[in-house]
Amino acid sequence: MSMLKFLGKRLALSLFVLFGLSILIFTISRILPGDPVRMALGSRAPQWAVDNLREQMHLNDPLYAQYYYWLTGAVRGDLGQSLFTRRAVIEDVREFLPATMELALSAGVIMAVFGILLGAVSGRYSNTWIDNSVRIFSYIGIVTPSFVFAILFLLLFGYVLNVLPTMGRLSPWIARPPVITGMVSLDALLSGNFAAFGDAIRHLILPAVSLALGGMAQEARITRSTISDNLRKDYIASAKGFGVPERLVMFKYLLKPSLIPTVSILGLDFASLIGNAFLVELIFNWPGFSRYGIHAMLNKDLNAVSAVVMVLGVIFIIVNILVDLIVAWLDPRIRLGAERGK
């Protein structure tokens, strides 16, 4: 019950955050120098065409009026037109977002599973050769940008070994499964097309892994330090001392309290994955949302910029609420505090 109240409060608060974010990005994108319409139409377009389009997009109206038009459209789900694709921005979002979500979710899963696994093993066997190799890997993972991994993987697995595809989401000879979620691998699975599923997964591996490595290293480090700290706690000695089997102590009584900091960082890392996906999408020719967003910003595609930022804002908020819920589930101290306090 009070959990619902907590959730409701968070959601209400998020609306304010989104509202503020929309004002901010709307204003910034419009006061930056450069004429978006001129950029869209090209330097050789006649002046009357530029004037027409400006009028059509209400760009001659005062800023608050423009914002009013944008906001009234946005609450109805109309985010305006893109100056470049000449389509409703919401169409573009629908087309490009699933590709990035597919990439980011896969990278998120890889990051969480392997990060926690490596960290746990490293913390359990701290100061052995296992721990040392994981720590070296972590340092490399943290300091190397994801596009470096992307290029290395592309060269190694794509050209030298030639074992994995390096372009796009699906091989050209495989028909795209019907769109259900927009994520090719999931759509293929849902429609029972296992050939397409396998192919989609093969396409996912390199970009997802290059994107995941940095965060994975981060999770591994944090998990390692909490595990090796908690390993020295009295409650672990106590559980062992009462004859609780080692395996149960490790996987239940040690892992659960140790995951709390990892999950918090995992949320932040996941949100930044989507932003970081840009170069990886570029390198692997992945028709994704990050690529679309950067393109929009470079070309002052006003409505597209607002839409991209708002969508990222929504994702960020959802991820944060999820993280809070998971942490509250893991940690009764937080859960009980929330129930008692508010």
Partner: peptide, 28 residues
């Protein structure tokens, strides 16, 4: 069996008293 000096440190903060006690009885 052993009683530790600091009960706050000796009890796992993220499991209920019942869960921990039952594990002890089950395996001990």
């Amino acid at each position: 069996s052993m009683i530790f000096q600091d009960p706050t440190a000796a009890l796992n903060p993220v499991f209920t008293v019942g869960d921990q006690l039952m594990s002890v009885i089950k395996y001990g």
